[in-house]
Amino acid sequence: MIMSEPIPIVDPTTPAGMLEIDLVKQARKGDFSAYDELVKRYQQRIYATIYHMTANHEDANDLAQESFIKAFQALPSFKGGSTFYTWLYRIAVNKTINFLKQRKNRQHMSLNDLDFNAEHDPDLMALISDKTPVREVGLTELQQKLNEALLKLSEPHRMVVVLHDVQGVSHDEIAEMMDCNIGTVRSRLFYARQQLQGFLAEYINPA
């Protein structure tokens, strides 16, 4: 007998049940519980984007918190021309790029652990067992090399790869987040992938 989990009933009058637009309106009035809900909705995506850009958990933690704080302070200037999510991303993207420019030559990695599912991802397993010349390479080493290669890219190129290939954000949304046109996004993505392929040739080219 299969026991199904009870579906949680969301009360639309509580922050958890409110629409994003209503939460933003409440937060603009200084309602911290509404903003708390907005933070909860986007914390993972914002943190992940910054983490993949910096390859450093502590930096990502600080920058993610600062991005949310800055967004709250800037809420009065949010005109609603884009979604709150895109606008928040833009703040995080700018903050991260500014941070990386300042610490240009002081990059050190502090990588997060891989989750349990990584060892069971068929794509990754196929990549390691079939294509890698160094057969005994482990996922941790691959993770290290991948992050090193990403850090060699310029900030705008890295951002496009992270947003599109890692986070799955569309070209249109990236263009809006990075305040550039869609052609620029496509060309940056192509160039960044080409560079990454060169840096990681040992690990992805057929033996």
């Binding site: 989750d115 991802d121 794509d123 890692v166």
Partner: peptide
């Protein structure tokens, strides 16, 4: 495929 590894961090 290799970039998928980042999703597992």
């Amino acid at each position: 495929q290799l970039l998928k590894l980042k999703q597992h961090e």
